[in-house]
Design a binder for these strands. Sequence first.
DNA 1: TATTGTTATACTCTATAACTATA
DNA 2: TATAGTTATAGAGTATAACAATA
Lengths: 152, 152
Amino acid sequence: MNSITANAQPLEATVAELSRAVGLLLRRLRAESNADELTWSQTVALSHLEQAGAMTTAELARAEQVKPQSMGATLAELEREGLVARQPHPTDGRQVLFALTSEGVRARRKRSAAKQKWLLDAMGALDTSEQRTLIAAAELLKRLAETHAEEE
Amino acid sequence: MNSITANAQPLEATVAELSRAVGLLLRRLRAESNADELTWSQTVALSHLEQAGAMTTAELARAEQVKPQSMGATLAELEREGLVARQPHPTDGRQVLFALTSEGVRARRKRSAAKQKWLLDAMGALDTSEQRTLIAAAELLKRLAETHAEEE
DNA sequence: TATTGTTATACTCTATAACTATA
DNA sequence: TATAGTTATAGAGTATAACAATA
């Protein structure tokens, strides 16, 4: 319809394909994750804690855009497994800080590599320009996910 | 470590970021989907049937890389809601073809636009080169998701 | 009053296992 | 025997609602 051939595809079709691709890939990531002892959600929570040192339930929930109750369930499970531990918040008695235990650190290091190995291998099989596309896309997808719905 | 600056980031970091971005976006897509009367999985199944006309449980399961039992559950729910109907397979008595009913077509058309409206809006807010990146990424993500794990 | 977290409950999505019917 | 589908069961992930403690 116009001369920008790379954009000839209507945005609707791209949205549909992108949605489906994202669904397929996440299902695959979860399935691979299950081969390990950590679930997908647990892995994500642990990696936040590894980066940040200690976070509250509410902070983690905001980072992953889930409800605090949902994150609370994930943290409770990790705590039961001894991978995270609570610390009192220094100034606010309502809040609870969670941090990796030494076993949590160990588990995280040991498993994170193996966990996403298939994706690493699959990405390694792409050529350099394709890898660059995905690096850029990761940033864009994050931005899309964080777009507010209440903009209309 | 080398001169290709766009690739200076280790692939591991990209894999982690891409995984997380995909998780965030799908969670968001599901949440928006719930505002509708169709769930995410139902929507995906309906769009396959809309494109293909009629498909068997096994075909749909393969297309979405889930087990036949899982797809069977989704189809059973859609059937209960009157959005899809069974047809006997012309030559194989074991197989069952599913197709959209007229209500299924109507529901699909009516809802598909609204369903992904926020993503359409969000993508519309990106510039042309960013949109192009996502168009290319959709294809790559699909390819990644379909990579076999058993390659090692 | 507002915020943080917890407990209780339910729904969606998906899997595995065991089964029936047909090829 | 192999394949398509169904039924039963379970676990992960998430949500909403109602509550308690603290700010």
